[in-house]
Simulated assay, not measured.
Amino acid sequence: MKVTRTITVDRPLHTVVAYLTDFGNTVHWDPGTISCTRTDRGPISVGSSWRNVSTFNGRTTELDYRLERLEPARLTFVGHNDHATTVDDLLFAKDGDATTITYNAEITFKGLLRLATPLLHGRFERLADEVQTSLTAELELL
């Protein structure tokens, strides 16, 4: 399942990218995230990792996320557990004094859960709408 949302905030690109580079901040803007804890140390770089506990469709799940791409205008985080793989790919563009974010999220279920994919697509779309609203509000506070 894939969803894409575009968000424009009245904040400088470097500020937005710096904030979103720390995946632990998802606890502030992802309504499904219960906790997101860094599992390594040192400066955030490609390979940095987090343990994310979240709810989706009424179930609590844990995913181990890794920062796979860290570029001035793009971040990619990949999460894994026994039941799913997720990819959060964020592209950034300067828009005057504002920043436009194209947020692509994809979840691929494993095993028997793959059969539920069509049934869960509507819920995934609603979650993406909620993330768009809360992420916009959070970034406007920076």
Score class of each variant (00 low, 15 high):
residue 99 T to C: 12
residue 126 R to K: 15
residue 52 N to L: 09
residue 27 V to C: 03
residue 125 E to M: 12
residue 138 E to N: 14
residue 10 D to A: 14
residue 119 L to E: 00
residue 48 S to C: 04
residue 128 A to T: 12
residue 87 V to F: 00
residue 49 S to N: 09
residue 15 T to I: 15
residue 118 P to R: 03
residue 49 S to C: 09
residue 5 R to Y: 07
residue 114 R to H: 12
residue 125 E to L: 13
residue 102 T to E: 10
residue 22 D to H: 11
residue 22 D to M: 14
residue 85 T to E: 05
residue 138 E to C: 14
residue 88 D to A: 04
residue 8 T to P: 09
residue 131 V to M: 13
residue 49 S to A: 14
residue 44 I to Q: 11
residue 49 S to T: 09
residue 121 H to I: 14
residue 16 V to T: 03
residue 108 T to R: 12
residue 72 P to M: 08
residue 80 H to E: 11
residue 41 R to W: 10
residue 138 E to V: 13
residue 50 W to P: 00
residue 108 T to M: 07
residue 103 Y to C: 05
residue 25 N to D: 06
residue 37 T to Y: 02
residue 52 N to I: 03
residue 2 K to S: 11
residue 94 K to D: 15
residue 142 L to E: 12
residue 30 D to Q: 07
residue 92 F to D: 01
residue 95 D to G: 02
residue 57 N to F: 11
residue 108 T to D: 08
residue 79 G to F: 00
residue 90 L to C: 05
residue 107 I to V: 13
residue 14 H to R: 11
residue 36 C to R: 01
residue 42 G to L: 12
residue 15 T to V: 15
residue 47 G to W: 01
residue 112 L to Y: 12
residue 15 T to P: 06
residue 65 Y to S: 05
residue 135 L to E: 02
residue 81 N to T: 02
residue 78 V to E: 01
residue 137 A to R: 15
residue 17 V to Y: 07
residue 41 R to V: 12
residue 139 L to P: 01
residue 126 R to H: 12
residue 32 G to E: 08
residue 55 T to Q: 12
residue 121 H to E: 14
residue 95 D to K: 09
residue 27 V to M: 02
residue 51 R to G: 05
residue 7 I to M: 12
residue 135 L to C: 06
residue 94 K to Q: 14
residue 123 R to L: 15
residue 71 E to K: 13
residue 49 S to R: 14
residue 137 A to N: 11
residue 34 I to H: 03
residue 66 R to H: 09
residue 131 V to Y: 03
residue 122 G to E: 15
residue 126 R to M: 11
residue 36 C to F: 04
residue 119 L to H: 00
residue 22 D to Y: 12
residue 24 G to P: 03
residue 79 G to V: 00
residue 142 L to C: 13
